[in-house]
Design a protein around this nucleic acid. Structure first.
Lengths: 339, 339
DNA sequence: GTGAAAGCGCTAACAT
DNA sequence: ATGTTAGCGCTTTCAC
C-alpha cells in the first residue's frame, strides 16, 4: 500500500521477530521480557540483546488482552481546574510512573452519573482507579469497588480503601486560633452538599465551637468555585459575624476579592480561614490563613494503596485500610484579632 | 438489571454472547456496533437491543489490537503544576471527551529525553499526541511526527501541525503600554532556554523596543517556576530598569512576592508585565498586568487538528496547518507610570 | 447483507 | 528451563 522507499512505517517488531532472531520460542521471549528469573540467564541475555537491537517495543494492547492487566490507572477529579487537584495529580503521577503505570486523567465535572458511567465504561481497560472527589452514593461506591479496584480520597465508605485528609481535626486548630483572637461567632461557609468533606468540616466546626462555648452558624451551600465567592462574601457580611471558616481556598479567595471590592477589611472587619492551602493561598491579598493539607502525599499514598491492593489480591473484602493524613493551621494575613 | 450477588465478577459479555442471543454471526455484531449502515436496519436494531439488555461494554484492548486504533490521545505537558497547563488540559479534555477519546496525561518534567522516550514507548497504544511544551529539537520532532500523529502547541516546526499562541504579537502591545507610561529601559526576564516561546518573546520585545527607540535588555534565564521569582526580582532590581516583561506569569508572581519582601514598590518603582494570564494573575498582589492567552482554546483547537489529521489521512506531508491564536494585553495593577 | 475464518501480539497453561 | 498450544475479544478480508 504505502510502501515508502525509505521503508518507514514498517511492520512493528514483535516477540516473534526476536524469537526468530535468537532461535527460541516466542513464549520464551515473552517470559524473558516480562518475568525474568523464570528463564536461563544466558538465553535471557541473548533475548534482551536482540530486543534492543531490533528496537522492540511491547504492544500493551496485546499484553492487556491476554493478561487482563492494562498497566493504566485512572484518576478521577471533579473539576480539573481546581488547583486542589494539582497536588493529587502530581502525587499520583509520580508514584504511578515509578511503578510503570500510565495515568488516565478523568474530569467528572462534578457529576456522579458521569463518574459512574466513565468508570463502568472503562473498567475493562483499567487496572484500577483513584477517586479524588467522588460524588457517588455509598452504595454505588461499594458496588463499583467490586467491579474494579478502587481507592478513594476524602471519602469514607465501608468496603472501599481510602485516604482521608483530616481537615476536621485541623478545624479544631482553626477554631482555637479564632477564639483566642476574640471571635465569638463563627460562620461556616458551606461548599457543595454532595461533597463528603463539606459535611465533615461543618460538623467539626460545630462541635469545636460548642466546646469553646462560641456560636457556630452556617452559610451556603455554594459551589466550590472562585466566582461563588461573591455570593458567599455577601452572605457572610449579612450575618454580622466577625470570622468565618470556608469550605475551601478557592471559594475563600473568591470571597477575598469580593470583600475588597466592597471595602470590607480583612482581617479588620472579618477574619477568613480557608481549607487546603492550594496554589495561590500564599500570594492572594491578603494572604490566606488556611488548613494546610498534605495533598501531594495523599496522591502518593492512594497509589501505594491501590498498587498493593492489585498485587496482594486480598481475598478478604473486610480487610479495608483507611489512611488518615493530618493537617495543620497555617496562619497568614487573613485572620486577626477582633476589632 | 443489577448483577446478582452470586454472579459477581462474572465473565464479561462479549460480542459472541450478543451473537448467540440474536442468532447472527459475531462479525455482524461487530459491524452493527462499529459501522452502522453496513448492516440491515432491522438486524441492527435487534443487536443493539441485545447489547443493551446484556449490558455489553466493548473491550477497547481487543478492538485496538485488531483495528490499530486505541481511542486514546496523549497530552504531554512539561510540568503538571504549572497552571498554564490547566487551560490546555481542560480544553483538550473537553474536545476529546466529545469525540469519544480518552486523554492520557503525561508530565515530561521539562526533559526532552523523557518526552521522546515516553512517546516512543507509548506510540503503539496511542492514536496521537498533543505536545503542549515540547523540549525536543526540530529534527527529533519531525522524526517523531512520522511515527505518530502529532500536534504541537507553541512550537513551530516544519512538517508538524501546530497551534501557536501569538504572544510575540501581544508583546508589541505590552511595549507600547510601557512606553506610553514613560518607560525607556525594558528588561526581558527570560525563561528556560529550551523553551521555544521564550526565544520568540525576547525577539519580539527587542524588535518592538527598537521600533520605539527604547532600550531592551535581558535577564536570566530562569526556570519558569515561582521560587525562581526571587532571583529574577533581584536581577531586575540590579539593572535599575523601571519596567520588565516576564516570560510567564508564574515567574512574575514569584517576583511580586520577592519585591514586596524587599520593599520595592510595584508599580511605583518597577512595572511588571507577565505572559499568559494564568490562574492567580488576577488576585495576586498587586494584580498582574499580563498578556492574556486563549489557553483553553488552544487546547480545543489542537484536538480538532489532531482528529482531522487522523480521519483525513492526508497523504501529503507538506499539507501542514499552523493555527495562530491572538493574545491581548490585560492591564491590571502591576504596571504604571514611571516615578 | 451476512457468515466463516484468519489473525492482531501477547500470555498462560500444559507438556517436555 | 523451554517449546507447544490455545486462546484473550475484536476487526476484517473474503466468500456467499
Amino acid at each position: 500500500m504505502e510502501e515508502l522507499p525509505s521503508a518507514k512505517r514498517a511492520r512493528p517488531v514483535t516477540i516473534n521477530d526476536i524469537a526468530a532472531l535468537t532461535g527460541v520460542a516466542p513464549s520464551t521471549v515473552s517470559r524473558a521480557l516480562s518475568k525474568p528469573g523464570r528463564v536461563n540467564h544466558a538465553t535471557r541475555e541473548r533475548i534482551e540483546a536482540a530486543a534492543r537491537e531490533l528496537n522492540y517495543v511491547p504492544n500493551t494492547q496485546a499484553r492487556a488482552l491476554s493478561s487482563g492487566r492494562t498497566g493504566t490507572i485512572a484518576v478521577l477529579v471533579s473539576a480539573i481546574t481546581n488547583p486542589f487537584y494539582f497536588g493529587i495529580i502530581r502525587g499520583t503521577q509520580q508514584q504511578l510512573k515509578a511503578a510503570g503505570y500510565a495515568q488516565l486523567l478523568i474530569d467528572t465535572e462534578d457529576s456522579g452519573e458521569l463518574e459512574a458511567a466513565m468508570l463502568h465504561k472503562m473498567r475493562r481497560s483499567l487496572d484500577g482507579a483513584i477517586l479524588a472527589a467522588s460524588r457517588l452514593s455509598d452504595r454505588a461506591l461499594a458496588a463499583l469497588a467490586t467491579e474494579i479496584p478502587l481507592v478513594t480520597i476524602n471519602r469514607n465508605v465501608r468496603g472501599v480503601q481510602s485516604v482521608i485528609i483530616d481537615t476536621p481535626a485541623g478545624i479544631g486548630q482553626a477554631v482555637e486560633h479564632l477564639v483566642s483572637l476574640g471571635h465569638r461567632d463563627l460562620i461556616y461557609v458551606s461548599g457543595p452538599q454532595s461533597s463528603w468533606p463539606n459535611e465533615a468540616r461543618w460538623q467539626a466546626l460545630r462541635s469545636s465551637a460548642a466546646r469553646h462555648g462560641v456560636q457556630a452558624r452556617r452559610a451556603g451551600p455554594f459551589p466550590a468555585e472562585r466566582p461563588s465567592g461573591s455570593a458567599a462574601a455577601d452572605a457572610v457580611v449579612n450575618t454580622k459575624a466577625t470570622a468565618c471558616i470556608v469550605f475551601n481556598d478557592l471559594l475563600a479567595i473568591g470571597m477575598l476579592t469580593r470583600l475588597r471590592e466592597r471595602g470590607v477589611r480583612v482581617p479588620g472587619d472579618i477574619s477568613i480561614v480557608g481549607c487546603d492551602d492550594i496554589f495561590g493561598a500564599d500570594f492572594c491579598h491578603p494572604t490566606l490563613t488556611t488548613l494546610t493539607a498534605p495533598i501531594e502525599q495523599a496522591g502518593r499514598v492512594s497509589v501505594s494503596m491501590l498498587l498493593s491492593l492489585l498485587t496482594d489480591r486480598l481475598p478478604d473484602q473486610n480487610q479495608r485500610r483507611c489512611v488518615v493524613l493530618p493537617t495543620h493551621l497555617t496562619v497568614r494575613e487573613s485572620s486577626g484579632p477582633i476589632a
